Simulated scan of single mutants.
Amino acid sequence: MMPATGTGSGTWAQQCPLCGQRNGCAVAQGLPAAQCWCMTADIDPQALQRLAPAERGQRCICPACGSAQPDPGASPNRGD
């Protein structure tokens, strides 16, 4: 997930649109995008799909909502 291009230092920019908690966005805190947690994290694509279309690329989710969750229906890869 790339940091949102339209974020500012306001509360809206610092809240995860999925859970309402602080999103930890470095850009919203006035820091370089390279320092954001999302630049080195594996973001769950399904989490991004839960965002309203108008918020995609504009709002940042938090690490908890963005963490890739294993699919409970998937079988483990056993190297078959």
Results as ranks from 00 to 15, higher is better:
Asn77Gln: 11
Thr5Pro: 00
Met1Ala: 07
Ala28Cys: 03
Asp42Met: 13
Cys60Gly: 01
Arg78Leu: 15
Gln58Ser: 00
Gly6Thr: 15
Gln14Phe: 01
Arg50Val: 03
Pro45Tyr: 12
Gln49Arg: 15
Gly30Leu: 05
Asp42Phe: 08
Ala74Met: 11
Ala47Glu: 10
Leu48Val: 12
Thr40Asp: 08
Asp71Trp: 08
Asn23Arg: 00
Glu55Leu: 13
Leu18Cys: 07
Trp12Asn: 03
Met39Pro: 00
Pro72Ser: 11
Ser75Arg: 15
Gly10Thr: 06
Met39Asp: 06
Trp37Leu: 03
Cys62Glu: 05
Leu48Gly: 14
Pro70Asn: 10
Pro17Tyr: 03
Pro17Ile: 08
Leu18Ala: 04
Ala52Ile: 03
Cys25Asp: 02
Arg78Thr: 11
Gln29Ile: 01
Cys25Gly: 00
Pro63Phe: 12
Pro53Cys: 05
Ile43Asp: 03
Gly24Pro: 04
Arg78Asn: 09
Thr40Ser: 13
Gln21Glu: 11
Ala52Gly: 03
Gly57Leu: 08
Gly73Val: 05
Leu51Phe: 09
Ser67His: 09
Gln58Trp: 01
Ala33Leu: 05
Val27Ser: 02
Cys65Ser: 10
Arg50Cys: 06
Pro3Ser: 08
Ala52Leu: 10
Gln35Tyr: 08
Arg78Ser: 07
Gly24Met: 02
Gln46Tyr: 09
Met1Cys: 05
Asp42Ala: 15
Cys60Phe: 01
Arg59Trp: 00
Arg56Ala: 10
Gln15Leu: 15
Ala13Pro: 03
Asp42Glu: 14
Pro70Ile: 10
Cys25Glu: 01
Pro17Ala: 01
Gln14Asn: 09
Arg50Thr: 09
Gly20His: 03
Glu55Thr: 07
Ala33Asp: 14
Met1Asn: 03
Gln15Gly: 01
Pro45Asn: 09
Ile43Cys: 12
Leu48Ala: 11
Thr11Ser: 12
Gln15Tyr: 03
Arg78Ile: 11
